[in-house]
């Protein structure tokens, strides 16, 4: 998998700091699972977090703190070593946790034009969903009110400017207005998170919008 489109520094920094809404956390964790370059960049930014901890404010702990901590630790035993996840073209582990399995287990709902989606349960602040776009199909032309992340899991899509293949992430903001089309040959499956409802420029999808939550 050759990844050409990576996470931005802003997103990695916010993920390292732990300040992203859950839906964005999910996309970042999914991308980092697939992309060692971004995993290394995340590690570098977490090292800054380590420096902040090292140099930051200190607060005296309770007198019995060490004893209480040892008791906590011993009473629960060691954390088991996570078994390596066999993943051959399947969903990365953080996504599996939300879907309850792999792509075969997704309960899709048709939203028109052959496109199917499923909303993933995340905390407020942003929403996450999986989108299944038939090969060659077009997504409605849309702009964005907030930030939208699109992580390609399989297949590929193109918009006016670029191609996004497996592992790639597209970061769209207020000023992005595009018409993504799934490449012919293979259906495209994407994980999408946004902190605002999408805005369609044609009338019909706008009417449908409240029902489909696209």
């Amino acid at each position: 998998m050759t990844i050409r489109h990576h996470l931005s520094d802003n997103l990695l920094m916010a993920y390292a700091a732990g300040t992203l809404p859950e839906a964005f956390d999910l996309v970042v964790a999914t991308h980092v699972s697939l992309c060692d370059e971004c995993r290394a960049r995340l590690g570098a930014l977490e090292a800054v977090g380590g420096a902040v901890l090292e140099e930051g404010p200190r607060c005296a702990v309770a007198d019995d703190s060490l004893a209480a901590t040892l008791q906590r630790a011993r009473s629960r035993g060691k954390e088991p070593i996570p078994a390596p996840v066999p993943r051959v073209g399947g969903f990365p582990e953080p996504l599996r946790g939300y879907v309850g399995g792999d792509v075969a287990g997704v309960r899709w709902r048709a939203i028109g034009g052959g496109v199917r989606q499923t909303i993933l349960p995340t905390a407020r602040g942003a929403s996450a969903r999986l989108l299944h776009i038939p090969a060659g199909a077009r997504l409605p032309d849309h702009g964005h009110r907030g930030l939208e992340l699109t992580q390609v899991l399989r297949g590929a899509f193109r918009d006016e400017d670029d191609r996004f293949g497996p592992g790639d992430i597209e970061i769209a903001s207020e000023d992005t207005q595009h018409t993504p089309v799934a490449e012919p040959g293979e259906d495209c499956v994407c994980l999408i998170a946004t902190d605002a409802p999408l805005r369609f420029t044609t009338m019909l999808p706008r009417i449908a919008q409240p029902f489909f939550r696209i």
Binding site: E22, A29, V32, I81, R87, E93
Partner: peptide, 13 residues
């Protein structure tokens, strides 16, 4: 924040 935190896949040892 009482929020779930999705973590990247563990690479193991």
């Amino acid at each position: 924040r009482r929020q779930r935190r999705p973590e990247p896949e563990d690479l193991g040892w």
